[in-house]
């Protein structure tokens, strides 16, 4: 198995708060790895350090063996990493398809071009990515009027634009109806299979996690407390305790947390 991402002893301290403490793991090619944990466990903080939005206090991140710690997000993106955010980040003044087109312009190094009529540039290609996530019929709608679940799908389309090897998805299904969640994760699993992309995702919906993840990591108070297959995690006593005395692992937790 080829390794895509390796995280070693990653730490992030905000003053006295150890948001992430000595986290290490690897992610292999075409693997769908889930990171779960209660609210405030440090999942988003981990993501932000891997993608460069936050500088770690200590520790390193390697992409295909190359040390990418402390690189800027835009540099890491060019190395073939895409991400979606827990709180969606899209361009609200543009149409849906234009959101995808901007990513394609950036991918093709066209951002500094002043040749007019960018709205025609890469439009067909962008429509293709929208079709992948099932949004082609909404292509010309204003992004500001989309439902939250649709914004999440739009973000996924954007993240797929530069044919990444690695996708980091922070709560990709938050704000969606249960059926939609399963469909989106199925779509993600298909992408992993078809394109050989590796995916690391966080998720509060345990149906989604246990249904699709190849491997699961559990984070609690900034530390990795367990790692394994779905059944190993399900039967881990410590994990059950963390999730308030078992059973909870199958409950959906609240939606729309505001920790970005």
């Amino acid at each position: 198995m080829t390794e895509i991402l390796r995280v070693e002893h990653l730490c992030k301290h905000f003053g006295a708060i150890k948001a992430v403490n000595d986290v290490s793991f690897t992610l292999n090619k075409a693997e769908l790895l889930a990171m779960i944990g209660p609210n405030g466990a440090g999942k988003s903080t981990c993501f932000n350090m891997m993608m460069g939005q936050l500088k770690p206090t200590s520790g390193s991140v390697y992409l295909r063996g190359e040390n990418i710690t402390r690189m800027a997000p835009r540099v890491i993106w060019r190395k073939g990493v895409g991400r979606t955010f827990q709180i969606t980040a899209t361009y609200q003044s543009m149409t849906v398809v234009e959101n995808v087109q901007v990513a394609l312009m950036s991918h093709n190094h066209k951002i500094f071009s002043i040749r007019p009529y960018a709205h025609k540039l890469y439009r067909d290609q962008a429509l293709g990515f929208l079709e992948t996530v099932g949004m082609q019929d909404q292509a010309d709608r204003h992004a500001a009027v989309l439902a939250y679940g649709d914004l999440k799908r739009l973000e996924l389309a954007i993240a797929l634009c530069h044919e990444p090897d690695l996708l980091l998805m922070d709560e990709p299904t938050a704000g969606m109806a249960p059926k939609e969640r399963i469909a989106l994760m199925q779509l993600t699993a298909d992408i992993v299979k078809d394109r050989g992309i590796s995916v690391l995702f966080t998720e509060h919906d345990m149906d989604v996690v246990f249904g699709h993840a190849h491997r699961i990591m559990v984070l609690n108070r900034g530390e990795l407390i367990a790692e394994g297959t779905a059944s190993e995690i399900r039967n881990n006593a410590y994990v059950q305790q963390v999730y308030l005395g078992g059973g909870q692992l199958y409950k959906k937790s609240e939606e729309g947390h505001v920790n970005a």
Binding site: W77, R78, R83, A103
Partner: peptide, 8 residues
């Protein structure tokens, strides 16, 4: 945030 995360 998104723009930086797409290489801009």
């Amino acid at each position: 945030r998104q723009a930086e995360a797409m290489g801009i």
